[in-house]
Design a protein around this nucleic acid. Sequence first.
DNA 1: CGATTCCTTGAGCAACCTCAAAAGCGGTGG
DNA 2: CCACCGCTTTTGAGGTTGCTCAAGGAATCG
Lengths: 196, 196
Amino acid sequence: MRSERLLRKRGERIFSVGSRGCAWRVVSGSVRIDRQAPSGEESFVSLAICGDIIGAETFLFDKYSFAATALSECVLVPWPEAAPPSAEAFLSTLTKAEHRAAEVIALRCGQAANRVHRLIMMLAHRLDAGVRDGSAALQVVLPSRQDMADITALKLETVSRIVSQLRQAGILDPLQRDGHSSLRQFMVCQLGTDAP
Amino acid sequence: MRSERLLRKRGERIFSVGSRGCAWRVVSGSVRIDRQAPSGEESFVSLAICGDIIGAETFLFDKYSFAATALSECVLVPWPEAAPPSAEAFLSTLTKAEHRAAEVIALRCGQAANRVHRLIMMLAHRLDAGVRDGSAALQVVLPSRQDMADITALKLETVSRIVSQLRQAGILDPLQRDGHSSLRQFMVCQLGTDAP
DNA sequence: CGATTCCTTGAGCAACCTCAAAAGCGGTGG
DNA sequence: CCACCGCTTTTGAGGTTGCTCAAGGAATCG
């Protein structure tokens, strides 16, 4: 087994525009993809979560044309895992990326509270609780408020207010860590993404 | 020469979710891509303009997974033109689509006036004036106000107001057609996309 | 335990939305 | 040709939402 598995902490750079490297599959955590404006500043483009492929453009250019940064602690493995990718694998990647892009676009429609709620639902993942209590609990590690703002095209103060609202509404339940309630890690206590 | 060339008027459907067909290259005009929500209603996903490929997912599923509608009168040709597409051609399509997605996402950032202005600049194309006056004039046929609103995540009244502003500011110059100034067809009289 | 960075909360305001009415455009048929 | 219809666009007035600016509190790291 190759040990090329990559681990990045929240906020760490995974790759930058123009550097060399391979494509990766996101095994856990979440990643933001940015493009670089001619001026050099980066702006949010897309989101990658568990199962998504990032950096596929390296097969064509062998340099990354986007930048990738960890939104939460995340694990990546080189892609494709073994043999050179089939045309089908490529197409599957293409269509998956298109669907993800569609979801990301949708995150910028509608009321702020809904947008943030939908983003959180996208990031949340089933918690295989080990316990057999049948309740399909969801857990989520939130990105920084600034990252959430970049994704939803809101301001960080607005996102902060909405996360507070969701907490008060009982939709988000902060995990307890040595007495403190975490600002990042939550249990998600409502299934629908359609808020008022 | 095959006559499979497709011509669609403004507002006409090009293909729908679930129907069979091939991929197309947009030769002229502009196209909106929508996805279908589980509820059945369609929501804007992406934009295709001159040179873009749409419906590439048919190579994998042979059914369209998005819907496409003409934003302005447009011409399409089957893709790939002749031989089965190479892996490179696929990848090129993938990365082009990613770049387009990046631009579309950016159309939902910042102030309304800037967003609309940037959209118009994306849609505008160089007018080979036939005349040798050297001025690289730009021309654009605008989509309906509602379509522009869907793309920029604004409301149609807001888009209408901003188009009026741009007209008054001399950035858009309505083409004259038998005495009337067109609401759709404009000369673009400013190069930068960075408004105040 | 500072120092730094991130997050929260408040107050006031501008931008954008909503609702509504009227005008413009395009087609159809008398 | 004109009258009429439906649809799109424009424009106005007023209300909300989300932004800006600012300050204080919580978390993280050396």
